[in-house]
């Protein structure tokens, strides 16, 4: 009897194993260890996920994790994104801006992106942030700086009236000493070292589009006067050109020794 039971059991167990082995191939594919498909599906940089991944990988270091509150110009600014032509944005990302700290991410750069990827990235950026931020900040002033037709003297007057309150020429208040720093006082923009590091285009873009993430208004204002009161009134293209001319003149205000041309390789 015991042998019969044993034989029955063996047969049952073998049958079970065979069934398991037979059905396993289909079941196996549902296990969590199954490798993901190869090659992995391409996520276009124009899609939100693809854009975010590329942004985090290559841009967030300077322009902020979320396109704002980075050390560099924020891109989460619909007005700016709409103002800069797609081709210009493409070539800036691809080749960088010489003599600035914007590196190129395409072309010959190591691990550079293909041109199509950059193009779809630009689209992705526009669809992600094209509507972000307040509208009309730039007063319709073109994004590109006009070379050298501003009036520095008029710029100086404008600066004193609308900018100097937040950008005093002296050293910024020592954060560690001042118990209640004025959050709007952002420090000097007439510092020659600062001016030598930035281009007229940088000054122009900052004045026209502002830095909403840091509390700086664009061309629409409102500005703060020398007495601390709000100054109404906007800047027009001529005003901006004058301001840029005034600031640009300050670049060479301090003599300095021989140096490497800023940023240029």
């Amino acid at each position: 009897m015991s042998r019969m039971t044993r034989i029955t059991r063996t047969i049952a167990a073998s049958a079970l194993l065979t069934v398991l082995a037979g059905t396993a191939p289909s079941g196996c594919d549902r296990l969590p260890g199954k490798p993901p498909p190869y090659p992995p599906p391409v996520v276009l940089a124009s899609t939100p996920a693809g854009f975010q991944a590329t942004w985090t990988d290559r841009c967030s270091g300077c322009h902020g994790a979320d396109g704002a509150l980075g050390a560099g110009l924020p891109m989460r600014n619909g007005e700016y994104l709409r103002a800069v032509p797609e081709d210009t944005m493409f070539s800036i990302i691809r080749d960088g801006i010489p003599s600035s700290r914007m590196p190129g991410f395409g072309g010959d750069a190591i691990g550079g992106l293909d041109d199509e990827v950059i193009r779809s990235f630009v689209q992705g950026m526009r669809s992600a942030w094209g509507d972000a931020g307040a509208k009309g900040v730039s007063q319709g002033i073109p994004w590109k700086v006009d070379a050298g037709d501003g009036d520095p003297t008029r710029g100086a007057r404008l600066f004193a009236a609308k900018c100097a309150s937040c950008h005093p020429s002296d050293e910024p208040a020592d954060r560690a000493v001042d118990p209640d720093p004025d959050p709007l006082v952002a420090g000097s923009v007439t510092d020659p070292f600062y001016l030598r590091l930035v281009s007229d285009q940088h000054l122009h873009s900052n004045i026209v589009f502002g830095r909403a993430d840091l509390g700086m208004p664009g061309a629409t204002g409102p500005f703060r006067g020398p007495d601390g009161r709000t100054v109404e009134g906007t800047l027009d293209a001529g005003d901006v050109a004058d301001l840029v001319a005034y600031l640009g003149a300050g670049r060479s205000s301090l003599p300095s020794g021989p140096e490497v041309k800023d940023g240029a390789p």
Partner: peptide, 29 residues
């Protein structure tokens, strides 16, 4: 990839002068 992929902490961007912000960019760059 730290220089392009790890942002300057927001606390270190706020209340910095324009020159200091250029320095923050330089630190990444």
């Amino acid at each position: 990839k730290a220089w392009t992929s790890i942002p300057t902490p927001v606390e270190y961007v706020r209340h910095r002068s324009p020159l200091e912000l250029q320095g923050a960019i330089q630190l990444q760059y």
